[in-house]
Deep mutational scan, measured.
Amino acid sequence: MPVRRGHVAPQNTFLDTIIRKFEGQSRKFIIANARVENCAVIYCNDGFCELCGYSRAEVMQRPCTCDFLHGPRTQRRAAAQIAQALLGAEERKVEIAFYRKDGSCFLCLVDVVPVKNEDGAVIMFILNFEVVMEKDMVGSPAHDTNHRGPPTSWLAPGRAKTFRLKLPALLALTARESSVRSGGAGGAGAPGAVVVDVDLTPAAPSSESLALDEVTAMDNHVAGLGPAEERRALVGPGSPPRSAPGQLPSPRAHSLNPDASGSSCSLARTRSRESCASVRRASSADDIEAMRAGVLPPPPRHASTGAMHPLRSGLLNSTSDSDLVRYRTISKIPQITLNFVDLKGDPFLASPTSDREIIAPKIKERTHNVTEKVTQVLSLGADVLPEYKLQAPRIHRWTILHYSPFKAVWDWLILLLVIYTAVFTPYSAAFLLKETEEGPPATECGYACQPLAVVDLIVDIMFIVDILINFRTTYVNANEEVVSHPGRIAVHYFKGWFLIDMVAAIPFDLLI
């Protein structure tokens, strides 16, 4: 008679799926529990143990900040960024110097990925580790590398530091407007667009060049630039800015003055950032001319202004700041037409079709709590990747769950009947059967004279019903998954307890 339990259901295979997918890609990662103190490590794979030199037993239950890997060259700011990422709910990448158990130093890129439950609360953290440099290539500990984003994938490793954006290309926007319009339909740009040429040739750093990471940081200074100062900065030398009595002219307006920039070969870094931020506020060169004239017309309804409409929906549905990093990277690809469009465009503009998908598509409701890094690593669709929660398995109709209350009560009843059979069957065979043979035949009273025979008949009927119930009862397979398919249940029961239950259900007393 089957006594099969499996009270692990309803099970959740999400954690096993993450481990299996990460292991298949030869990654070095740990999984931490966000619900406990210090976000203790609950799993670390073999790749991480080989990377740091510690065994799994030495890593388990330690804080996922990996303070046991810190050393003299470990930056405090990087460690603080990892700790801050564990307090938030967004994906974050941090470069930090770690030390192995043998004392060797290596520069590592740590990717902190939160995993949320159905309520939107962070319950786990996945920390992925990628070695960037070994100890002989690690720089000085005073050099802070965590304020910069990861290198873009479309640049060669040897040319990542030679990417320079020439400031004269930004200063000569109005001069290039006529050349853009003359391109017409034969050019790649839309009317009114501004073409910015980027020099990728390796050259020595000069005062006129600005690194790509500095251009990325310009967006942080746009908020500090007032509207009046932006307007004066875009007017140009024809209309000098008016300053109040006793007030000095704005240095932001002076930063885009061609006369002032041409007199000296070098520009201050602050002026460069502010000038680029001011130019980015204009949607095209037409807006710059309109600002000089004193009238700013409404933005025209053409394809170039609607190019950012799908980007707005993608940004609203993005799951991490990696989408913004990807957008900034692609927006700086050289030799393309940049349409400086305000994100607050007309909502009635139709979304044009684009061959290049900048932001990841909208994630469906079932995966809105899973970050983009987890979705990318697992390579699963929205119909396959579940949320991290207890999910009731989908069972067929008329199927009994093996952990249901009805099955528990039924098993206790069958257990009592088995005990009765084990006690009274030998007793009936030894004593009652002998008395029946010696006594007179009682054929007239039937079952009324033999109450134990009636009980034995009921017990046999219950055993037959138990066999039928076992054909529709779920079970737990070797992978700790609840199986509810009727065919698989029948095959599993035939290979197991079916023969024993059938022999126990045969009414031998009635056959004798």
Rank of each mutant, 00 (worst) to 15 (best):
292 R>P: 11
37 E>P: 12
205 P>H: 05
158 G>T: 06
117 N>T: 10
223 A>C: 03
132 V>E: 07
291 M>D: 11
60 M>A: 01
85 A>D: 01
137 M>E: 13
222 V>L: 11
164 R>V: 07
258 P>D: 13
128 N>Y: 06
140 S>T: 08
295 V>N: 07
80 A>K: 10
73 R>M: 06
119 D>I: 06
194 V>R: 01
67 D>E: 13
98 F>Q: 01
338 L>H: 15
197 D>E: 01
158 G>S: 15
65 T>I: 09
214 E>T: 15
41 V>S: 01
359 I>L: 12
63 P>Y: 01
281 R>F: 10
33 N>Y: 03
30 I>D: 01
121 A>P: 11
104 S>L: 08
57 A>Y: 07
9 A>G: 15
293 A>P: 14
316 L>M: 08
269 R>S: 11
111 D>C: 05
322 S>C: 07
154 W>V: 06
124 M>N: 06
178 S>C: 06
275 S>D: 11
130 E>H: 07
367 T>Q: 09
276 C>G: 09
32 A>L: 01
238 G>E: 11
180 V>I: 14
45 N>Q: 01
240 P>L: 13
55 S>W: 01
73 R>T: 11
47 G>R: 08
152 T>W: 15
313 S>K: 11
97 A>P: 01
170 L>V: 05
118 E>C: 06
188 A>S: 06
55 S>C: 09
204 A>V: 03
313 S>H: 12
37 E>Y: 05
153 S>A: 07
328 R>D: 13
169 A>H: 15
131 V>F: 06
237 P>T: 07
333 I>G: 14
348 F>G: 13
223 A>S: 07
82 I>E: 01
226 G>W: 05
89 A>E: 14
8 V>S: 10
107 L>Y: 15
46 D>I: 03
304 S>Y: 11
39 C>E: 01
131 V>M: 15
202 P>W: 01
145 T>M: 05
360 A>E: 06
156 A>P: 11
97 A>E: 14
12 N>R: 14
243 S>L: 09
216 T>S: 14
185 A>P: 13
247 Q>N: 03
147 H>V: 11
118 E>Q: 10
15 L>K: 01
146 N>F: 15
213 D>C: 06
313 S>T: 14
308 M>T: 06
27 R>F: 09
360 A>Q: 09
140 S>Y: 15
9 A>Q: 15
25 Q>N: 14
154 W>M: 15
336 I>A: 15
356 R>S: 11
338 L>M: 15
113 V>A: 06
66 C>M: 15
111 D>Q: 06
70 H>M: 11
218 M>T: 04
74 T>F: 01
321 D>R: 14
373 K>E: 06
295 V>I: 14
223 A>V: 08
363 I>F: 05
225 L>D: 10
65 T>D: 05
305 T>W: 07
185 A>Q: 05
340 F>N: 15
343 L>R: 14
270 T>I: 08
248 L>N: 12
350 A>D: 09
140 S>R: 07
318 S>H: 08
182 S>K: 09
16 D>L: 08
146 N>W: 15
309 H>N: 14
200 L>C: 13
185 A>R: 06
64 C>I: 09
259 D>H: 04
167 L>S: 10
329 T>N: 14
350 A>T: 07
17 T>I: 07
134 E>W: 05
57 A>M: 12
56 R>G: 01
